[in-house]
Design a protein around this nucleic acid. Sequence first.
DNA 1: GTCTATAACCTGATAGAC
DNA 2: GTCTATCAGGTTATAGAC
Lengths: 218, 218
Amino acid sequence: MSATETTTKPTSERILDAAEGLFATQGIRGTSLKEITEQAEVNIAAVNYHFRSKDALVREVYQRCFQPLNAERLRLLEDAESAAGEGSLALEQVLYALFEPMVRAWQENRNFILLVGRLQSEPDPHLNVFVQGLYGSLIDRFLRAARRAAPDVAEAQLFFWIHFLFGGVVYTLINSQDMERMHPGQNLIDTSDMFLQDLISFGTAGLRSRSQFPVTRS
Amino acid sequence: MSATETTTKPTSERILDAAEGLFATQGIRGTSLKEITEQAEVNIAAVNYHFRSKDALVREVYQRCFQPLNAERLRLLEDAESAAGEGSLALEQVLYALFEPMVRAWQENRNFILLVGRLQSEPDPHLNVFVQGLYGSLIDRFLRAARRAAPDVAEAQLFFWIHFLFGGVVYTLINSQDMERMHPGQNLIDTSDMFLQDLISFGTAGLRSRSQFPVTRS
DNA sequence: GTCTATAACCTGATAGAC
DNA sequence: GTCTATCAGGTTATAGAC
């Protein structure tokens, strides 16, 4: 690097950084290009030069955010599979590979999990289809691993309750600050290792449970 | 009622109905007053006459939506408590009283759960504070009941994991259509009774589990 | 209570100079 | 690649007639 060169990031990256944070805290529709370019300290027209439109910028933000996360998930799963013998992978290890990267990302940058949460509510169907493409074959890959780890649980049950766990994780991470404020005295997820440990115990116990409570209409 | 009177709802109610549906499907910031008044077939100025502003309309929509829900939750809990002897309430019954009204509301009107989901993502802090007020002492009330039902589980754990279950329920109900599409062949929550039954088994098994899986940093 | 008309402002997007 | 200037359209909110 040259000695006189300032380490300022390029314009397109500054736009992506600002957009990521503002989308996370204010929502996508709740954030205007004016706000983004002001925070990034670039000209308003730059966003339409480097990206084609606001929609394209949104997709770039999510791509940059989700691609390394899902790659890490896949890496952890493959590491665990090759470390364990064929078919001897535990359900606990599958859940660990699925959730560890997300909890770690949350620990490093709280904006990340907010960005994930936006997808549950932002109505844009184009974005949802795009993000589903980012997940690609990851869901199938993890479902097959879970199926081998828990052959006694029906595949449809595994599929459903792993998604359920995903929803619970996103919700509790997003609301962790509010929950700590509402119930002070004991930090519940102040360390991500502790939370992961409890999550995996909670999830596997649930997945291995069988319906017992009779529900009757009132 | 008079013979010639049409059974058309009053203007303010038509506005609330239209706003509820549009907020659910398009988001709050993603819905303009113009859209609302067009769907309600009322004049654009009526929303500022009957309600003070868009913010006040949003609060009215959530109040009308959440008040009967939480009243029903409380009723179910108190019914179960008076039916059972003092202190003999099961954790399953607490979870039933908490989630049954929500699942039933989802079954009757899919817009409802979308409206709940908006709160996780819409950035408006004023709205969040307002809705927290709607929940009022309900959380404390249910936490005390759960504590009596499971005295061996730490209160902080109960608080945390019941919120976790709430996040999972909202997520799976919101995404139930997509999940059915992604994993066809077996309906998982086609009947709310079946889902409630599985949910309560899953949740109580998780709540009663203890951490077993050792998590180590990679 | 309901309507028309309009104010004041913000939005994404683009043309064209530099 | 970066800027200024501007466009066409949408937004909430309000004033004032009926």
